[in-house]
Amino acid sequence: MGVGIQVEHLNAWYGANHTLMDITLHIPANEATALIGPSGCGKSTFVRCINRMHETNPIARVTGTVRIGELDIYADVSPVEVRRRIGMVFQRPNPFPTMSIYDNVASGLRLNGFRNRRVLDEVVERSLIQAALWDEVKDDLKKKSGASLSGGQQQRLCIARALAVDPEVLLMDEPASALDPIATGAIEDLIHSLKGRFTIVIVTHNMQQAARVADMTAFFSISKGGEGERWGELVEYTTTETIFTNPADKRTEDYVTGRFG
């Protein structure tokens, strides 16, 4: 089962760029939360702060606290431990091209020392079923490489790879933006079937997608200061229905109705 995420006063920088300004956001457990907003508003940076991937860039910096369940991820543990509990799916499918489908899914477990064949077989099958890919690949699990699949299948393979380590949270950074509409539909159905068991945070630039899959939606925007500085901030965070039908902030309304962005 998933856990909730408490983000308090999160600030993030890329070099001198203040990418995220003072974000406070409570993400509920076992629901899907969408992050929407124009390009450059920091929504991707925000999810990358939740599993401490942001800091893998040498010029990046983060302050504030992020709690995954009871765990303060910037104070209590190392980034490696954080990422073991949090799965991530990226914008472009990035399966390991030199590994078979099976090895791709098993990679997270193998990395953490699992060697038992029976356990691995079981987890690989379960994860591929959860990712709605099992029926398409079950006959050539060990014959085909991860890169031989279509784009949509590759992305579901990456989801299976993330699910295999039984994460408490699943982060998805525009998981369907490189896919065609049919593959996108498959990913959205998948998100529907996964919430309830995992806490899902999904970044998307597609508002209809947010409306279709998310229970809660956060709208991020870019604010500009006097001397040309700009930063990303959280404008509004509420239920998806409210964001799209009755937003409190004018900027949200402009964005969701297509007048901006």
Binding site: N51, M53, E81, N94, R161, V165
Partner: peptide
Amino acid sequence: SQREAVLALGA
């Protein structure tokens, strides 16, 4: 993206 894929798995 390959490095990030491995890092995100907790490597």
